[in-house]
Design a protein around this nucleic acid. Structure first.
Lengths: 273, 273
DNA sequence: CGACTAGTTGAGGCCAGTCAATGTTGGTGG
DNA sequence: CCACCAACATTGACTGGCCTCAACTAGTCG
């Protein structure tokens, strides 16, 4: 639990969030501001002038590096900032009172996490890096202040929050009314879409999480997940080699998942898992 | 689909949302502003001066009455406003692409719904009255404008959004890792708490929804719900008479639901379902 | 009164969980 | 470099909780 307080010399006056085991670095010198950040269109929906982006990027010039397995924040720690994933990926997990833990979401680059802390002032879940990960820290108080000046930013923030609600609803639908094979298919389709949107292959990717973590997210046991991977392979839907996945029959997967791919009529929208 | 355009004479200039089969009435004359509305502390977390409240209440002086079964908004209809429940209750339901429908939440007086529409500009679920219901319409554009002037209101709005995310997470936990009896117990405990917070009995209340709707929300079939009600009664946990519920052994229910009632150490927070 | 909806209860089946044995992979230190 | 270990993954046999199908009851409304 060594807590790094090596704050950058930057003008960010926000209180340092409860980071653990992390290295805090300043990327000011690297000129890694939001307007040259590749994630710009994902993090904050487009529609901001470059001068506005300048203001935002000056907000978020604190960065954090996490090694695989390290924690960005924990349930109950004070909420002070939102976090944008610049590189890598994380899982968020929620805890039941009785100790049961469940993966609430997987987050990859360009996604904003920590939103659930706004309500109570403390984080409502754990965020743990699934691989070496780089995070952009956005002090929330300052974001709120800036949002009062920039209506577009304000609206974007509201959209990000509302999209998280939409995402949660689709997970509820998955958990509440889909069978195991449908859940796993939906999971793969979702990952595929998100990789695709980021310019990666939609058909070949490497899972960053264990079978158990997948199961936790989908409300299944790890053995069930493993069996389904094997079955999907037998049926020619995918090829599995450990965590390496190759999608062979995307259409069949999409049908299984309940999302007919004539959904091309619907504009693809950012939806994380 | 008769659409009432009987807008009140009030100064609300917002475009009328896609209401269906509803009567729109002005309560200006009834002086039913937020600051005398009994729901003030629930709707918008406290911390606003009375003059600020005045501004907000002038925003929300359009009211809607729904009869049982009527729709407040539908999936896909344009989002223009948030809705506060003044009286009665509603369910919201989400639709899968393949037509499957699932109850996403039950909302009673003092709760704010329609939040999910912010993201895409169209509603992401249906909202249907479970009984005769009165709704307070809060035009969202104007709310955003006002939020830029009133930091407290701005923050409250963020909190309401974030609390919805928290709530969804607890539903995900329920659906993903609890057994049928635990789910139903959690449902009853949740209702009990919410009635209690509103000054109603926490031990005797009347369900506003069918067994099927309960099942849909909990990821169970109606027969399972019915059987569990019977079993809970046999075991002396509750008394059931159709939709009338009397909780006999609240502690046992709470234990079943995974929320030990020593959770009195944790400040009870508003959490809808 | 008949038609309809909501709810209860029973019998049987199936999907996913549980338990257990074995195989595979990746990191570490000698 | 390889042996070793721990974590991760696969597969099989069996179990059980919830679903499905079905019959019946109770209350409601025209």
């Amino acid at each position: 639990m060594t807590r790094s307080n090596a704050l950058p010399a930057a003008a960010v006056s926000s209180h340092q969030p409860g980071l653990e085991n992390n290295t805090v670095i300043s990327l000011r010198d690297l000129k890694a501001q939001c307007n040259i950040c590749g994630m710009r269109g994902l993090c904050l929906p487009v529609g901001l002038s470059s001068s506005d982006l300048q203001k935002i990027s000056s907000l978020a010039d604190t960065h954090v590096k996490l090694k695989k397995g390290e924690t960005l924040y924990r349930t109950g720690t004070p909420f002070t900032a939102l976090y944008a994933v610049r590189l890598g990926s994380l899982k968020t997990t929620v805890l039941a009172e009785d100790g049961r833990e469940q993966v609430a979401g997987y987050h990859m680059l360009g996604e904003l996490i920590g939103l659930d802390g706004i309500g109570s002032g403390t984080h409502g879940c754990h965020a743990i890096a699934l691989e070496d990960t780089e995070i952009c820290v956005v002090p929330f108080e300052q974001l709120e202040t800036l949002a009062r000046e920039l209506p577009t930013l304000q609206h974007n923030l509201h959209q990000v929050l509302a999209n998280e609600i939409i995402r949660d609803h689709s997970v509820m639908l998955l958990l509440g009314s889909m069978r195991a094979e449908e859940r796993l298919a939906a999971f793969l389709v979702n990952l595929s879409d998100r990789y695709c949107r980021r310019g990666y292959s939609s058909t070949e990717f490497v899972l960053r999480m264990t079978r158990e973590e997948i199961g936790s997210y989908l409300g299944l046991k790890l053995e069930t997940v493993s069996r389904l991977f094997s079955r999907f392979q037998e049926e020619g839907l995918i090829q599995v080699q450990g965590r390496a996945i190759k999608i062979i029959n995307a259409e069949a997967l999409r049908n299984l998942s309940g999302q007919n791919n004539n959904a091309a009529t619907v504009p693809p929208k950012e939806e994380s898992a």
